[in-house]
């Protein structure tokens, strides 16, 4: 299949005697919104760090945007976007200065930067705040801006690590509209979340328990499989089997 953007086979990460990620395998397709779920300590973050080129697997293989996680970490970084659960723009810089910084990091020319940031600000309905200090924006706006900036270089995959933590439901809804838009344009979204209503928005979900992928399918089929009313139930049924603590 040509449209596989992330492909992982038997990926394992061991720290001394502790196996954080235990032989996981999955594929993520272009334009998909892939939900990566799991309780705290299930190994989500470790797996995500490997996929972002921040750490190397102990064994197994994986490619992201066509680059090998074992050897091409630097190339991967160039082709992905990343937004973390902690707000990570600079509060003492303006909206536009933040955009210029990240555009510069990803090597956009100043003309491209101008074009792309205007486009993103228009989409966010945010052009009037171009010269506002980011620190003075409400949290919901900051998160949307973070997402926009994570896609400033038109990455093939965007990794979102609990992007909507601490945001009110209305803003979360708006945030997901942005995610849909990006996915419709062909950007692949790889998202972790603790909100089960958000899990329902994903095209496909994987649920990690104790370092292993315990379930992987569309939300509808997962609910069917576990005879559950909601994703919340599915998640709890699976997480109950966990042996690891927090």
């Amino acid at each position: 299949m040509n449209d596989v953007v992330i492909s992982v086979r038997e990926l394992t990460k061991r720290f001394c005697n502790f196996t954080a990620v235990d032989h996981i395998s999955f594929d993520v397709h272009k334009g998909e919104i892939f939900g990566f779920l799991g309780a705290n300590g299930a190994g989500k973050t470790t797996a995500m760090r490997i996929l972002c080129g921040l750490s190397y697997p102990t064994s197994g293989s994986g490619t992201v945007a066509g680059y090998d996680v074992m050897h091409d970490g630097e190339e991967i970084k160039r082709h992905i976007g990343y937004m973390s659960q902690r707000f990570s723009l600079y509060n003492d810089l303006t909206v536009w200065e933040n955009m210029r910084l990240f555009a510069g990091i990803y090597g956009l020319t100043s003309k491209q930067t101008e074009q792309r940031s205007t486009e993103l600000l228009d989409r966010l309905n945010f052009s009037s705040e171009r010269n506002t200090l980011v620190g003075s924006l409400p949290l919901g706006w900051k998160q949307k801006l973070s997402f926009a900036i994570a896609t400033i270089h038109r990455p093939e995959v965007v990794f979102l690590d609990e992007p909507t933590g601490g945001v009110d439901p209305v803003t979360r809804r708006q945030f997901w509209e942005l995610i849909y838009e990006a996915a419709n344009e062909g950007t692949t979204i790889f998202v972790t979340t603790h909100y089960m209503d958000e899990a329902e928005y994903c095209s496909r979900l994987s649920i990690m328990v104790d370092g292993k992928v315990q379930a992987l399918d569309t939300p509808a089929r997962l609910k069917q499989q576990y005879a559950a009313e909601s994703m919340d139930e599915v998640f709890r049924t699976l997480a109950r089997g966990a042996k690891r603590g927090e």
Binding site: L54, Y82, S84, R86, S88, I105, F159
Partner: peptide
Amino acid sequence: MGTMEVLLVSPV
């Protein structure tokens, strides 16, 4: 602040 994390994921 957590900004270092984002910088580290970038190609810099």
